[in-house]
Design a binder for these strands. Sequence first.
DNA 1: CCGCTGTCATGCCGAAACAGCATTGGACGC
DNA 2: GCGTCCAATGCTGTTTCGGCATGACAGCGG
Lengths: 92, 92
Amino acid sequence: MSLTHIQSFVAVAEECHVGRAARRLHLTQPPLSRHILALEDELGAPLFERTGRGMRLLPAGEAFLVHARRILSEVDAAVHTVRGVVGNSGES
Amino acid sequence: MSLTHIQSFVAVAEECHVGRAARRLHLTQPPLSRHILALEDELGAPLFERTGRGMRLLPAGEAFLVHARRILSEVDAAVHTVRGVVGNSGES
DNA sequence: CCGCTGTCATGCCGAAACAGCATTGGACGC
DNA sequence: GCGTCCAATGCTGTTTCGGCATGACAGCGG
């Protein structure tokens, strides 16, 4: 599991569509599709239902989405916190 | 930035020693050293002071450590939540 | 019923990332 | 100054990864 996979998952969950999510992430559809498959494989459960017209979140996917968003914002907060500490320490 | 890098950072922060952290992660010293350097490069600030006898956390590193631990436990929680949802949905 | 379209999955290949080995460079204690 | 211990770096073989081309399948119109 990597942060890239989590970002991919969130994008697909929000778009319900691998192709659109791929464009949003400046990626192509195949690797993105593989990210989702890898995630499902690692978690041992499918996260999406493949509808033939896109992807729909399953309950397990909804549950994961909550945590996924929290992880990504925590990463963002970590980056900003470090920048803040460094910036303040050097200020007059 | 990847979850692997964050795990490496936490291990080094706790051991104050790249070699020991490497053993703990079943890894060797050079890649682990590079993980830390990559993290510092990405954050734009050093996280450790190199003491010639090991590594000591700088203030920026302490700040990052708090978030790093939270990220890792959130990932853990995400995995367990998905397993829980799947397990319960199939129970009688 | 049959092709047409739109979607995700897969086979394949070249490029990039990665881990480990060997070595260097530097700090500390004697 | 010398030996020891540490992190950093050069290098190489392997693995991972992204993109292209294609396959497999569902849904729709005729």
